[in-house]
Design a binder for these strands. Structure first.
Lengths: 312, 312
DNA sequence: GAATCGATATTGATGTCATCAATACTGTTA
DNA sequence: TAACAGTATTGATGACATCAATATCGATTC
């Protein structure tokens, strides 16, 4: 048992406008008999005569006139809905090109990317795992829409938004012996770092205050190209490194019993996003940001007594 | 190829409200499979994913949320329409009982009654052709809804609304001899009137200033019970009477060549409607009034230099 | 008064649609 | 691994919107 339908309203308004069943049918791209039948059906459904067929052109009855503006209102809101649908489709269509640094990518992406991709099937997400400099350059050139990386970046022309603070922990691959670590407990000769170019390298060096100190005390300098290699080398050489908290959760990559907090002030890095100032898809960006925050907030919680280590 | 339908909107809002296809289906009195299919169809039609099925309870996607308030707006306007339909049905249903005086009924009703009855098939019109006193009494007692008669009535508790002024013309059944008539030209011995009780009788007596004058100059006093009898008697006895203009148009009842205007000030009567002060169907009354005015305005036009003759 | 015209109402046919019951599929829980 | 709760899919079916053809109606013309 049907109620009033949108096409019926459309036919009614066309008939009121044209004064003729034939012309109204033409305007609505249906046959005259369809329009006649549908108007009659509407009148039967609501129990009122809406049109006076004895006048020429056809005019509305008083009841029809009493309802006309409300029929128009329904039609107007339907048109508003259809327009908003188009606007919404345009925003959540196309692509979003994301650059993310390698010290975040393998730990953060698994936490939110599948859900994001499923939520927005019409958006083509593109992920590039590249370094901070490459990210900032390509965002500036509009080759990337968003960068996920450690902030701040040394580019005041880009929009920067901090998402969360991520603390560093000590990974000592020897048998567990210390409940707590102090920075000065770190033996620079056993310290392994990622190669230059990774902002985290700079951050760890800052934490340990040990650029020159480290070069003078070892005849082997090895800088890993990837964080996986880093973890493998630290493990196999019973070395030490500093890891961001999200990395320490991956039990498949390391022995979580060998992870130690640093006493005193906790060194942290700011993780956030950068975009070009003219980047338009603000709602999609907010979605990305909200998904990331939803994913990491339960893990990282709130930080106290921290020292932010900048990536440059 | 269908577009968005009202039931689809209803299902969407129910799903957003309940967070479950099963509960939403229940609330909408359809099966779960119907609701699932219709939501999917809506999403396909508009090209957007509106619900995230992986969360429990089910939540809207960002696009769905962006459109939600506009969907609600459409629903609200549909509800407003349905409510207004009910209000409108209540006003234009039932009956309208009309009293009309006999010196108006046969000339005015044919001008508008068929059209009115066809326009409002759901209204039961009831017409009583009775005198002014009967009309005013029965409107006071709510036995009639409306009276159509000569105004004013001597009842200040009734609502009175003047519709038009109707002038009187002389009907002299002798062979046409005068281009113009003055009141003093009227031979009281040949004057025929309706019987007492008809306000028009009083009006004509006032016009001719001749109550006592007439009684003293004739041994035959005949007062017709109906205006048809009056016209027949005036015709067959080559008498005289005064007729309201609408009556003079009926060529089937009299020789229109025997109709004369009165020179000098034109005597007219006010025709209008009376209703009980608590009569509620104001819109239907307005319809009746507008139909009458539409019918008589082209005939009567605008009056100049008139003297209103009251019916009492 | 009959024929013609323009317009609406009706009819029967037909493809599309909404809806159902049944069931397959999925993720969670015990 | 089985059971459970919930959603998605499938095939069947009655309801529906729509069409082409034509009946009906009121006005106009001859």
């Amino acid at each position: 048992m049907t109620s009033i339908s949108i096409p019926q309203i459309k036919y009614l308004l066309a008939l009121e406008q044209t004064g003729s069943f034939s012309h109204a049918a033409e305007a609505c791209y249906v046959t005259q008999s369809t329009l006649s039948t549908m108007i009659k059906k509407l009148e039967t459904q609501i129990g009122l005569s809406l049109f006076d067929r004895s006048s020429k052109p056809i005019r509305m009855t008083e009841e029809g006139s009493a309802l006309l503006s409300q029929f128009r209102q329904v039609q107007l809101e339907m048109e508003n809905l259809e327009e908003l649908i188009q606007l919404t489709k345009n925003e959540f269509y196309g692509s979003m090109r994301i650059g993310i640094i390698p010290t975040i990518a393998p730990f953060l992406l698994p936490l939110f990317l599948d859900k994001l991709v499923n939520k927005y099937p019409n958006v083509n997400f593109s992920i590039d795992e590249i370094t901070t400099n490459d990210i900032t350059n390509r965002v500036k050139l509009r080759e990337l829409d968003v960068g996920i990386l450690s902030l701040p970046v040394n580019e005041k022309d880009l929009m920067q938004q901090t998402l969360f603070l991520e603390d560093f922990l000590v990974y000592d691959a020897r048998q567990p012996s210390h409940k707590n670590y102090k920075v000065k407990d770190i033996d620079p000769s056993r310290l392994w770092l990622l190669e230059e170019g990774h902002c985290m390298t700079t951050q760890i060096e800052k934490i340990c205050v040990l650029r020159k100190q480290r070069e003078s005390s070892s005849n082997l300098v090895y800088k890993s190209g990837s964080i996986l290699s880093l973890l493998e080398l630290v493990k196999s050489n019973k070395g030490i490194t500093l890891l961001p908290r999200l990395a320490t959760l991956r039990e498949n990559l390391l022995d979580t019993n060998c992870i130690y907090s640093l006493t005193g002030t906790t060194p942290v890095r700011k993780i956030g996003v950068i975009t070009h100032p003219n980047f338009a898809k603000k709602r999609l960006l907010k979605i990305l940001v909200d998904e990331i925050l939803d994913a990491v907030k339960p893990i990282l919680g709130k930080k106290k007594n921290v020292q932010v280590i900048n990536p440059y």
